[in-house]
Design a protein around this nucleic acid. Structure first.
Lengths: 216, 216
DNA sequence: TGCGAACCGTACCGTACGGTACTTATCGGG
DNA sequence: CCCGATAAGTACCGTACGGTACGGTTCGCA
């Protein structure tokens, strides 16, 4: 466990390249394929360098998660005034993005890795994955929901509760199923549309409900 | 892969005892602790017997899942006439049961195991887990939802879709978080109540909505 | 009582992994 | 031109696992 709290600058370019190779290895062959020798061979570096840079195998895994998280940048919301239609659209886009992220090769591989290790390391990797990987997406959604409330389009007491409802409506048991090896959704757009529709029915104000197709 | 399609009788009592020990080992120490030698030692049996009974390590894992699934028996719904209140109560009970099952030690351990193996074996364990472990709970919920529809309390086109919505409302991202090592919910009753309330708001007919507290 | 099957306990084998040590080569600065 | 640092490549070590083989023991059964 050599790497801990160095948010900025993180790793050197060379180290990033090695981590990229390690991720590729993990995606292709699962954790079993992610051996220190394998990483060294794939990245054309020595095992000694691996251990100098990342401490031990766990440090390498942590670094892989940190590196992958550092690659994902979710563009901030612009401060535009939300309308009923634009809120709906933004929510649908968010839903599709979320489903796409969760279904991604690297995301699934890292989640599988962290799940598999959660017994050994006191869920260190799991924490890392949730904090570094999910925080951004959570913030994006929370910002959107808050904007909706300020625009008088959404009504709720607890933003966290509303967000978790939205998350459940979007993802359902899909994430776990994919982690277990099931192929992903055929039609993510439809799933996103359904989820947002249900969410707005639950949390939308009259202003929003008036513009929604009637149930039935 | 010695064990495949022998639904009834499954394993001998002795083998069941061994599988029980193996599950305990898995729960306590994760997959790393589940070695063939360890199982043999914990269960006071020989490795040779393990291989004779289960073929190889994968066969043992499959047998553990099958054995655990065979232990779970969900009582069938009685054919009573549903009222708005009883539908609500049954849904809440189902929600709490679902959360309790997903948070169970053995369930989490087996799910972690299957997730970790999903790369190697073409998700054989994952399929097994979903088919054997989830089918019963799914059927229970579907039966309940169908009864609600026949009683004029629920309205939907696609029962599957409605069920997945309910599932998402209940579980949200809790299952994955627990798989990653986060502690479970403090208050499952509240979560269940919220989920059912939202579900009924989405799929309940006027008969149900009339009796619900107004959204505030 | 004797026989055979099942099974326990243990020792064993090959392999593969995590981690370390050592040699060689590249490269920037005085 | 030399020197120290950094890192590639390789060889190596200890360990632990999956799987197999074998001797000894129990138990059902004729």
């Amino acid at each position: 466990m050599s790497v801990d709290n160095l948010e900025p600058s993180e790793f050197s370019p060379r180290q990033n390249a090695v981590l990229e190779q390690a991720l590729q290895l993990l995606v292709d062959g699962g954790e079993k394929a992610l051996t220190t020798s394998g990483v060294a061979r794939a990245a054309n570096c020595s095992k000694e360098s691996l251990y100098k840079w990342f401490g031990d195998r766990d440090g390498l895994l942590s670094a892989m998660i940190a590196y992958q998280a550092s690659k994902v940048r979710t563009f901030e919301r612009n401060g535009e005034r939300l309308t009923s239609a634009s809120l709906h659209d933004h929510l649908v886009i968010f839903s599709k993005d979320l489903l796409e992220v969760l279904a991604g090769d690297v995301s699934l591989a890292l989640n599988r890795l962290a799940v598999g290790q959660s017994h050994r390391d006191g869920s260190k990797l799991g924490k890392l994955l949730l904090e570094r990987g999910r925080r951004q997406i959570d913030r994006r959604a929370m910002g959107l929901i808050d904007s909706g409330k300020r625009a008088g389009l959404l009504r709720f007491h607890d933003a966290d509760e509303a967000y978790h409802t939205l998350y459940g409506l979007i993802v359902s048991d899909l994430h776990v199923r994919m982690l277990l090896g099931e192929p992903g959704l055929k039609d993510t757009a439809r799933q996103a549309e359904r989820a947002v529709s249900a969410f707005l029915r639950l949390y939308g104000t009259e202003k929003v409900l008036a513009e929604m197709p009637l149930v039935g």
